[in-house]
Write a protein that binds this DNA or RNA. Structure first.
Lengths: 354, 354
DNA sequence: TTGTATGCGTTATCAC
DNA sequence: GTGATAACGCATACAA
């Protein structure tokens, strides 16, 4: 910038003013300066220098759980991303993705979750945050503009979500209402420790994944209310969010001849169950009803009964609020948005056989 | 950092050394300093300050053509992204996405394409770059580590691609080999001006989109070699990369009763043609053969004959090279990688009826 | 091993 | 409308 100033015969701050469009420089001067800059091949104010002084980098961050590639594999995360991108592209900020590990790595005090907090981005969108994640403290302390999606409520942070409890009750009521009594429950994961298989009451209580825990709690309570005890439900944890883990977890449920319906805490799990059912020769819905959660695009194609929620809408809302706060330049009063959900009855659920 | 230093009873550089793991500070001191920092809630060195001094931000950029949301809508772009993310998550750098507008916005000398060049990221991956895009000069001048995918070759910049010319010849040979003579050609866009419809020879020559131009050139040459002139081909430009534009462009081709085959420059276009054919009651492959390009996941599901290329592989390679160069801290000698392609014959192509 | 001084490229506050 | 000057948070060369 100094070189540009020298070449244009003005002071260095004058060049800065020219770029920021300040009224402190005349229109003709501004044009002259910009022309000189262009001829010198100066690309414009350096983001690093600018951000150090101004406090803004020009990027918002999206914290992706565990692995970056999940965001592109999981239709759920992808829809969120689409929503965010739609809003984001209207503004002039970039979108920075980085992983947020659920387990803290030993000895890594300066780990990746801090990148965001340490100034990599101006604001932050986080979804499915575990209960006690350390990033929470940093956000609060640094007052980083942030919005959380489908996570525990955080004091003073914008929040987008749905009524997971009620939606899950709807799910279970639908299945019980059809007459099912022997019900399998397939959840993604209750703790980020990779464990899978049957879920003990203790593990259920110890769960740190708020969304899954809420849904499971609703399943259990609703079943209870209909006279089906915890031990009568067959609850299995997949240990993760992928199709493969879903199929593995579904397999034993499908071998359990007594079970006439499976309630899954996500469409990915439910669709994995459908795939596995086909592989094991179990007829849906004749022998087995399956219900999912989310209504991802593939659910419609495979005729899955599920709970619809607007994933794109959540992403949009989150990005909109975040950009609004950045635009304002000062903290907004925390907003809360709870999106509606609805049951979409399709062909994967029916009355039990006998 | 100064506060931490004061609280720990050391100098500010000592804290810096503690974080960088320099041997200039004793292990016990280091531990002490880090403990004090933690108790103070200091999250670690600020990225902005650090990057200004060290020249590294800890993020690589992906320039997305036109709109950010394209990257998540287009299966082609998504596969690329998956490949990049797979590699990226192994490293400790974030992935920053930003749009690269194909038309320069008037009066916006400090536009978004410069963000990357102005220090937002340490390195850059760009795909399907138009011929004369201004970012090229900036990259060259600033010597920003970059790798381009499916773009014009750039002097001194890493390159990943395929042999578009040969792959497109294979495509057209397959169709002509089946006996088709009246062939429709459906391309995405030749210039970023939003124009659509029949493609004049002049427009073909003026095309700035290297990939599409190469493919079209191969189609025309191959047809010529088999005695089919430019004017006998019915060439239509969709004006963009979306399914909707593809269907609109396919419609007139489908109404042209003489045409027995459509060669599309991407699977998105080819699949849009299949959808539109179904809508217009045209039977594939009985009345019409359709061939695509890319072999995106959906192509297999819809039995589309196409050219297979490893989209994920390209993304992986690009990210790997970029990270390697950043790791090295100095320019690598430019690498070039040309991935193989192969024809995948499925059910959407067959001999013409009569 | 530790502390001191300097500069990275900007922007904002002044006094002119 | 302009030109000095300080400060942003840090990393390194150098002196102690």
């Amino acid at each position: 910038m100094k070189d540009v100033a020298k070449a244009a015969g003005v002071s260095q701050p004058a060049v800065s003013y020219a770029y920021s469009g300040s009224s402190k420089v005349s229109a003709s001067q501004r044009e002259h300066i910009l022309a000189v800059a262009a001829s010198l091949g100066y690309p414009g104010p350096n983001v690093r220098g600018r951000s150090l002084r101004s406090g803004r980098v020009g990027a918002i961050g999206l914290a992706v759980m565990d692995q970056l590639s999940y965001a592109f594999d999981d239709p759920w995360a992808l829809s969120l991303l689409k929503g965010i991108a739609q809003v984001n592209e209207l503004s002039n900020v970039a979108l920075t993705l980085f992983p947020l590990r659920s387990k803290k790595l030993e000895g890594e005090g300066a780990g990746d979750e801090n990148l965001a907090v340490r100034g990599l981005v101006d604001g932050l969108i986080i979804s499915t945050l575990p209960d006690d994640h350390p990033i929470v403290q940093y956000i609060a302390r640094r007052a980083i503009p942030a919005v959380v999606i489908d996570s525990p409520r955080l004091e003073g942070v914008h929040y987008v979500g749905i009524d997971d409890r009620q939606a899950s009750i709807d799910q279970m009521e639908h299945i019980i209402g059809l007459g099912h009594r022997r019900i399998g429950v397939l959840v993604e994961r209750l703790l980020p420790d990779g464990k899978k298989g049957p879920v003990s009451k203790a593990r259920f209580k110890a769960s740190t994944e708020m969304i899954v825990r809420e849904r499971l709690a609703a399943y259990v309570d609703t079943a209870q209310r209909h006279g089906i005890g915890y031990d009568e439900l067959v609850i299995v944890e997949a240990g993760g969010f992928t199709n493969t883990l879903g199929r593995e977890a579904a397999a034993p449920l499908l071998r359990n001849a007594g079970i006439t319906a499976i309630v899954a805490s996500s469409d990915v799990m439910a669709l994995a169950t459908l795939t596995q059912a086909a592989a094991q020769g179990v007829q849906v819905p004749e022998q087995l009803s399956v219900i999912g959660f989310d209504d991802i695009p593939e659910a419609g194609l495979r005729d899955l009964t599920t709970i619809r929620q607007s994933l794109i809408g959540k992403g949009e809302w989150a990005a909109r609020i975040l950009l609004e706060e950045l635009e304002a330049g000062e903290p907004l009063t925390p907003r809360v948005k709870i999106f509606d959900t609805s049951l979409v009855a399709r062909g994967s659920t029916a009355r039990p056989a006998s």
